[in-house]
Amino acid sequence: MTDTNTLDVWYTRCPVPTPLGLAAQLGWLEETFQHHGVTLKSIIDSPDRSVRESHFDHHLSWSFRQGGNVPPIRARSEGRATRLVGITWTDEFQALITLPETGIRTTRDLVGRRFGIASRPAGIVDFLKATALKGLVSALSLEGLTKHDVEIVDIPVAESVIDGVGDPTRFGLKQRLPYAHEIAALIRGEVDAVYVKGTQGITVANLFAAVPIVEFGFHPDPKIRINSGSPRVLTVDERLAEERPDLVAALIGTIRRAGAWAEAHPDEVRRFVGREVGASEETVLAANGPDLHRHLGIGLDPDLVDAVGHYKDFLRDEGFLAGDFGIADWVDERPYQALDTLAVA
């Protein structure tokens, strides 16, 4: 067994609302692993590009991740040995938008019009493209339409999401605000509508006084809301899961604690999430709704697992996966069983 006195564990999270992010900001994540003699190292903050790539392909041993579900689903479809150990469902703003001069005001007005979807270089699964396509399909389905009722226009983007560290055109920020290429195409008149989501999507839509065609991030049908960020998954690599299940159980216990803390601290949650996503508390409230603090738990409830399976099937059918796999075979409930045993004892 690995000597825990010298064990490093890698972790990463997306800049989105997650209970893992809360646990990290509260200091509980590092505290938990230090108690087990483990040093946590951040994948996404590494200066080594090959390390940062694990945020998207999950190749590092002794690692865990919570965030958007496209990269871990893709990694699993490629045969990456990982385990799905938790799911968090936090709804967020999702919309199709346009500019006033297009004359588009309803979803049905999109029939025969140009819908722009940005496309990035090969190498890392294009999760942003997958997200936009699912948003389009969901929105159109509300009117009995399909993607074949619109003209999908490719918006080529030369820069990979993994590149750009130290790029002076980012003006000192870690990442570029998304949707710049889509908005530029709208302004140039090359496309008629695009998809946006989350705090960053709502910020961009507000900045350019965009016209909302349809918003569906809080639609009552969960299959409409399902996308890369709804729900978000917690995955661990197989070696960590098999050799140190105690660490995985401790991780989930800490995340559960953060979720319980969130329910009792709604104002602090908006502030913490704002810090996580780089947005104001007002924007977090607009993008995630007033009940955000009630939706930062974690579990493997059947409806959550089914939601991940639904999106996996969408990705498979649209060609984003290397192959198919069974969600049930990916799920690992052992950490919860271990926690329940400890609770009884």
Results as ranks from 00 to 15, higher is better:
residue 322 A to C: 09
residue 34 Q to S: 12
residue 233 V to K: 05
residue 187 I to P: 10
residue 182 E to C: 04
residue 131 T to H: 11
residue 44 I to Q: 08
residue 99 L to E: 01
residue 262 A to R: 10
residue 12 T to P: 06
residue 145 L to Y: 01
residue 290 P to F: 09
residue 12 T to W: 06
residue 123 G to F: 12
residue 35 H to Q: 12
residue 44 I to L: 12
residue 230 S to E: 07
residue 236 V to F: 02
residue 229 G to K: 01
residue 46 S to N: 12
residue 114 R to V: 02
residue 313 D to I: 05
residue 229 G to Q: 02
residue 150 V to C: 06
residue 148 H to V: 11
residue 204 V to D: 04
residue 84 L to A: 11
residue 182 E to N: 11
residue 235 T to C: 11
residue 107 T to E: 02
residue 21 G to S: 08
residue 104 I to D: 03
residue 81 A to T: 13
residue 16 V to I: 11
residue 253 G to K: 03
residue 172 G to V: 02
residue 330 W to M: 04
residue 263 E to I: 08
residue 165 V to N: 08
residue 323 G to A: 14
residue 185 A to D: 04
residue 120 R to M: 07
residue 324 D to Y: 08
residue 321 L to F: 10
residue 229 G to T: 00
residue 338 A to L: 15
residue 260 A to S: 14
residue 73 I to L: 14
residue 227 N to P: 04
residue 20 L to C: 06
residue 340 D to T: 13
residue 179 Y to Q: 04
residue 101 E to A: 10
residue 36 H to Q: 10
residue 202 I to F: 05
residue 212 P to C: 04
residue 245 P to H: 12
residue 116 G to K: 00
residue 228 S to R: 01
residue 165 V to F: 10
residue 35 H to G: 12
residue 302 P to I: 06
residue 87 I to V: 13
residue 47 P to H: 08
residue 216 F to P: 00
residue 228 S to P: 03
residue 264 A to G: 11
residue 175 Q to P: 09
residue 203 T to R: 02
residue 12 T to A: 15
residue 144 G to N: 10
residue 92 E to C: 08
residue 290 P to Y: 08
residue 267 D to T: 14
residue 152 I to H: 02
residue 147 K to C: 10
residue 144 G to L: 07
residue 118 A to W: 01
residue 323 G to M: 03
residue 147 K to D: 14
residue 160 S to Q: 05
residue 215 E to V: 07
residue 309 G to R: 06
residue 77 S to P: 06
residue 177 L to K: 09
residue 35 H to D: 07
residue 17 P to A: 06
residue 335 P to W: 07
residue 279 A to R: 06
residue 132 A to T: 07
residue 225 R to P: 00
